[in-house]
């Protein structure tokens, strides 16, 4: 029995650590600290327990317990719904929205990370059971490293270049280089935009990247991340200064425009490069035969 206690303990610790290290409360304001954080740690702990007891249950052998474990694991599907619902509700009062695609992406990540905690616990406790707890230390570290490394995802900086551009007007049309952003009526607003607005171009490196940037959900994610770091001058009844990302319809690059509270162009470029690519928005045309044919 003592043997099982060590096996389960090894699994629980590794699984919980994996959840703890993949949980980050950063500029995305999600999950909120401390209560949202604690909810996820608790769920991560439960996930780790589930994964850790699976191997001892089979080894005992207690097949009924294993069946219950599978049932319990189903509960983690609810996490995605929970996250989605919370974020969609918060969205209603946001001036700069995350967008449905970003929310879906975040919700998926939360769900997946609990499964990762389960697998980490399962493998660690399996190794502890078969070879002894000394080996489970290594197994746990490798599992945690892999779950952090492989689930990292890609960023805008991987698929596109961000370059400087100038904000100017053609008549009443606000332009960033050669892309029309919007029509601005009031001369005062135009002056303010010319003085404080920053524009950059986001140039896709290939056809897949072009399709990704084409997705409005991905653009909302870019705008949301930039605004949550650099701020924006848009307010409830002052919607003229809204940050926007528009596409050059022929060349496929994005023109990004914002009036930030912190007018720092270099930081803006760095922030855009670090925006995560949304899983569901990623273009994969070059993976298909016709996509490759069309590209040349």
């Amino acid at each position: 029995m003592d043997n099982y206690a060590v096996v389960i303990l090894a699994g629980v610790v590794a699984g919980f650590l994996s959840r703890l290290l993949t949980l980050r409360s950063d500029y995305r304001h999600y999950p909120a600290f401390p209560h949202g954080y604690f909810t996820h740690l608790s769920l991560g702990f439960i996930a780790a327990c589930l994964g850790a007891v699976a191997i001892p249950a089979i080894a005992k052998p207690d097949y009924v317990a294993v069946t219950f474990l599978v049932l319990a694991a189903q509960q983690f599907r609810e996490i995605r719904n929970m996250e989605r619902e919370t974020m969609t509700k918060l969205e209603e009062t946001k001036l700069v929205k995350r967008g449905a695609d970003y929310i879906e992406g975040i919700a998926r990540v939360f769900e997946a990370r609990n499964y990762l905690a389960i697998f980490t616990a399962l493998i660690t406790s399996g190794v502890a059971h078969l070879f002894g707890w000394q080996y489970s230390l290594a197994a746990g570290i490798i599992c945690i490293y892999l779950s952090m490394r492989l689930m990292r995802g890609a960023y805008i900086g991987d698929i596109a270049e961000v370059v400087d551009a100038t904000v100017h007007f053609e008549g009443s049309l606000l332009m960033v280089d050669d892309v029309v952003i919007m029509n601005v009526g009031l001369p005062e607003t135009r002056e303010k935009i010319l003085k404080e607005g920053i524009g950059v171009l986001i140039k896709p490196k290939n056809d897949d990247a072009r399709l990704t940037l084409h997705n409005p959900g991905q653009r909302m994610a870019i705008i949301h991340d930039v605004v949550s770091i650099l701020g924006t001058k848009v307010d409830i009844n002052e919607t003229e200064l809204v940050p926007l990302a528009r596409k050059h319809i022929d060349k496929g690059y994005l023109a990004f425009f914002i009036l930030p509270n912190e007018p720092d162009r270099e930081i803006l470029k760095q922030v855009i490069k670090n925006v995560p690519l949304i899983e569901t928005a990623q273009g994969t045309a070059l993976k298909s035969f016709y996509g490759r044919k069309a590209a040349d």
Partner: peptide, 16 residues
């Protein structure tokens, strides 16, 4: 235009 836009929560556009 400015007053209306603020009161209505709209954006002023110019038809030139």
């Amino acid at each position: 235009s400015l007053l209306l836009a603020r009161a209505l929560g709209g954006v002023v556009h110019d038809l030139e």
